[in-house]
Design a protein around this nucleic acid. Structure first.
Lengths: 116, 116
DNA sequence: TCAGCGTATGACTTGACGGGTATATGAAGC
DNA sequence: GCTTCATATACCCGTCAAGTCATACGCTGA
């Protein structure tokens, strides 16, 4: 149903990235994700469905629970896409730190149209 | 104007990824991008604006043209986010090839509805 | 000055995605 | 059977991003 073509669109959603990060640590049931992320169960299930249909996760049934675990392929695709760009920063590694520091400093509200 | 919080949301757009890929090869003017991507100029300009405000590109003025070039920081962020996941595939590298081969073969339908 | 090119912006429309609520399914236990 | 727990789905709605069109801006050369 939901178009949602590329792997990039899937991980554009912050909650889905959170789910993936948790699953990177260890596999989880829906309820565990629900508690750790403090989000409604229906929301978790919906995101898991999207992730599952896009191949990011798979589930196995365990009694009444469904335990989800990570599948690496789609993220490998993203990683592969980055390849041609890496030459831009492999030279000077500390640029990221400076960038992240700036992000940190900014008042978290990009709401207003800032110049440049 | 456009919220567009994360770097992930920016590269969720296929046309923007195309622009970035072209700029990874070499800096380009708007017109060059327009021709290579075969998309309307207003569209290119709008995507460039989004990319610029998100720090993915910067432009310099050259006569009547604006030449855009890549800035690496936001993509470095994405690369950094991938770090915890790499352990899932650094062991067996060929899984990506198999995955991409499948993508190639399938007629645009995601992982087929397994319908239990 | 004007014309023409290159680029940016504004208004508008459309459609997709995410959140919420209610409900359905299905397994386990009484 | 019924009830409870765990998860999934259906529906509605608000929001927001992307496309299109028209137009405005800025630079250059005649």
């Amino acid at each position: 149903m939901t178009r949602m073509e590329s792997s990039f669109a899937i991980i554009a959603e912050p909650n889905r990235r959170s789910i993936l990060s948790l699953l990177a640590a260890s596999e989880c049931s829906v309820g565990e994700l629900e508690r750790q992320l403090r989000m409604p169960q229906t929301s978790v299930s919906k995101h898991l469905r999207v992730l599952r249909e896009a191949g990011f996760v798979e589930s196995r049934v365990e009694a009444q629970r469904r335990v989800y675990r990570l599948r690496p392929e789609p993220l490998m695709e993203v990683d592969a896409w980055l390849t041609p760009f890496r030459r831009f920063w492999t030279a000077h590694v500390d640029a990221l730190e400076r960038h992240l520091d700036r992000m940190d400093a900014t008042p978290e509200t990009p709401t207003k149209g800032k110049k440049r």
